[in-house]
Design a protein around this nucleic acid. Structure first.
Length: 271
DNA sequence: ATGGTTGTCATACAA
């Protein structure tokens, strides 16, 4: 049966709750993973999600910054959150789908919000870039340590790295721009391979096709200039490769009223 | 080479 999972950096879940509701009504994935909710747990709009059938909710938020959430129509057997870089900055949550679920029983889902890394791509001069590299380094260690027992696992999130040449509008012009520098793109690829994960979207849509999930707010006309990047990702453990079916990037959501700068990315598996 | 926009919270900072 079809199992659909969406990842979306919403850039404030409270400000854009109406956009989330619209998306869920029109697309109704089984699981929605949000990043940058910017919302403390006690202020999260739980009721809006429950009304739409998303009764399983895992949230980890803080005031003003960051924050992740997993909303599901399927029951959770467990949920967990890991603090990276010894910070309580709400950049990871994971859940396991319950054995009583009608689909995807036993599936593990990780939702990440990797630090953006600031402007200057030099860890000696920019503590935010150093934090990003440290975060990725910790992820790499966890990924390779768990590789042998890794089954039925999906990793999603705003990883804030566009790893491939055709994940950005201009490879040459972005080589020194945070999100596409060699240290970041090489590290992200090493993490993915070391963890035994497949890039769900690129397995369905190989290069040289351009694939973007983010367009800057700073462009005068994001659609006309189309200077996008693929910062949002869905990976699956290799045992799920036969189940991989399709993906959809809802680019039109970038043109909705008061949009996020990221759009929803949905992948469908036969689970 | 530079600045461009947005959200949150307070008029700075992160993205």
């Amino acid at each position: 049966m079809a199992f659909r999972i969406t990842t979306w950096n919403i850039n404030s879940v409270r400000l854009r709750i109406n956009l989330v509701v619209r998306f869920l009504k029109e697309h109704a994935p089984d699981v929605l993973c949000l990043q940058e909710t910017k919302c403390p747990n006690d202020q999260f709009p739980l009721g809006e999600f429950r009304k739409l059938g998303y009764g399983s909710i895992a949230i980890k938020g803080q005031k003003g910054y960051n924050g992740v959430a997993i909303l599901s129509r399927l029951p959770f057997a467990s949920m967990d959150a890991v603090n990276y870089c010894d910070k309580e900055d709400c950049r990871h949550m994971s859940v396991v789908i319950g054995q009583d679920a009608r689909r995807a029983a036993g599936l593990t889902i990780h939702n990440f919000y990797v630090p953006a890394g600031g402007d200057l791509p030099d860890p000696a001069l920019n503590v935010k870039f150093a934090h990003k590299l440290a975060f990725l380094g910790q992820l790499e260690a966890l990924a390779s340590a768990g590789r042998e027992q890794r089954r039925a696992e999906i990793i999603v999130g705003d990883l804030n790295v566009a790893p491939l040449e055709h994940d950005v509008w201009s490879h040459k012009q972005l080589l020194d721009v945070v999100s596409h520098t060699p240290i970041e793109t090489e590290t992200l690829t090493r993490i993915r391979l070391g963890g035994g994960w497949k890039d769900s979207v690129r397995d369905l849509e190989p290069e040289p096709k351009k694939v973007y999930t983010w367009w800057s707010y700073r462009a005068a006309d994001w659609e006309a200039s189309n200077r996008g990047r693929r910062l949002d990702h869905v990976w699956h453990s290799d045992d799920l490769s036969p189940a991989l079916q399709s993906y959809e990037i809802l680019q039109e959501a970038r043109g909705w009223e008061r949009p996020s700068d990221h759009v929803p990315l949905t992948v469908t598996y036969d689970l």
